[in-house]
C-alpha cells in the first residue's frame, strides 16, 4: 500500500504538505521510548508516537519509517516540521489516541 492511498482515506492533518507521499507502507509501529523504537521498528512502517521533539526526525530517518503520526493531539514544534520537510519525512497529526489511531490504520488495510 502507498502512503498517499492510505492518507486519502483518513481525516488526519498533513503537517508536512510539501513532502511526497509516494512511499510504501508495510505495517505500524507504536512507541515513545526512542531506543525501543530504534531497536524494534522496521523500514516502511507508520510510526505512531506522542513525542513531538526534534529527535523523532532522526529516529524516523535512520529507521526508514514511512511517516510519523503524532497521536492524541500531542504538540509538535514548527522547527521539527521544518526539519521533517527538509528530510522528506511526512508527519501527520491524529486527534485519536495511539491505540485508536493504530486500529484505524488496521481497518484501512495496513
Amino acid at each position: 500500500m502507498k502512503l498517499h492511498e492510505l492518507f486519502n482515506e483518513l481525516n488526519w492533518d498533513n503537517l508536512t504538505p510539501d513532502v511526497s507521499l509516494d512511499k510504501d507502507v508495510e505495517g505500524v509501529y507504536c512507541g515513545d521510548l526512542l531506543s525501543w523504537v530504534m531497536g524494534n521498528g522496521l523500514p516502511n512502517q507508520v510510526w505512531i508516537t506522542v513525542q513531538g521533539h526534534m529527535n523523532i526526525i532522526a529516529v524516523a530517518g535512520l529507521r526508514e519509517f514511512s511517516c510519523i503520526v503524532i497521536a492524541d493531539n500531542a504538540s509538535i514544534e514548527d522547527t521539527v516540521l521544518q526539519k521533517a520537510t527538509e528530510e522528506g519525512i511526512p508527519v501527520f497529526a491524529s486527534h485519536l489516541p495511539v491505540f485508536e489511531s493504530a486500529k484505524l490504520l488496521i481497518e484501512k488495510g495496513v
Partner: peptide, 16 residues
C-alpha cells in the same frame, strides 16, 4: 522526558 533512558541503548548496540 524526551523518550530517552529506556535502558536499551547498550543492549541494542551489542545485539546489532
Amino acid at each position: 522526558s524526551m523518550g530517552f533512558g529506556a535502558g536499551m541503548g547498550l543492549p541494542n548496540i551489542k545485539r546489532v
